[in-house]
Computed example of a mutant assay.
Amino acid sequence: MRKALDLQAELGPLFDITLDCEDGAPIGGEAEHAALCAELALSTANRHGRVGARVHPVDHPAFAADVETLVGRAGDRLAFLMVPKPRDLADARRAIAHIEHVARVHGRGGGLPVHVLIETHGALRDVHAIAALPRIESLSFGLMDFVSAHRGAIPQTAMGVDGQFSHPLVVRAKLEIAAAAHACAKVPSHCVVTEFKDVQALAGAAHRAAREFGYTRMWSIHPAQIRTIVDAFAPTTAEVDEAIAIIMAAQDAHWAPIRHRDTLHDRASFRYFWQVLQRARRTGQPLPVEVTQRLFADA
Rank of each mutant, 00 (worst) to 15 (best):
K186H: 10
H254W: 09
L277H: 12
M159C: 11
N46D: 11
E137S: 09
H190L: 04
L287G: 12
L42Q: 11
A149N: 10
L5I: 13
I258G: 07
V83Q: 10
A234Y: 00
A268Q: 10
H190F: 14
T157D: 14
K3A: 15
L169G: 03
V114G: 04
P235W: 01
L169N: 07
D126K: 03
A209Q: 01
G72D: 08
R108E: 06
Q156C: 05
I27C: 08
L277P: 12
W274N: 15
L112Y: 00
P61N: 02
S43G: 12
L112A: 02
D126V: 02
L70T: 04
H190R: 05
S148H: 04
P57W: 00
P134A: 03
A201Q: 04
F15S: 14
Q285G: 11
D231L: 00
D23Y: 12
T18H: 08
A250R: 04
Q200K: 09
F165H: 12
E239R: 01
I226P: 01
S189F: 13
V147N: 08
Q8I: 12
E119K: 07
G75W: 00
P134K: 03
S140W: 11
V51P: 10
A224Y: 05
P84Q: 03
G111F: 04
H48T: 05
F270L: 12
A62T: 04
Q164A: 11
Q285N: 11
A4V: 13
V58W: 00
W255R: 09
A41M: 08
E32I: 13
A38G: 07
M248W: 01
R259I: 12
E137Q: 08
C184E: 15
A97N: 05
L89P: 08
G29K: 06
T18Q: 14
A185L: 13
H48I: 02
V83Y: 00
E22V: 05
V230K: 00
R282L: 13
V127N: 06
L124Q: 06
V171T: 14
P84M: 02
R47S: 12
D298E: 13
R151D: 13
L42C: 13
R282P: 06
A65N: 05
A253G: 07
T120R: 11
A209M: 01
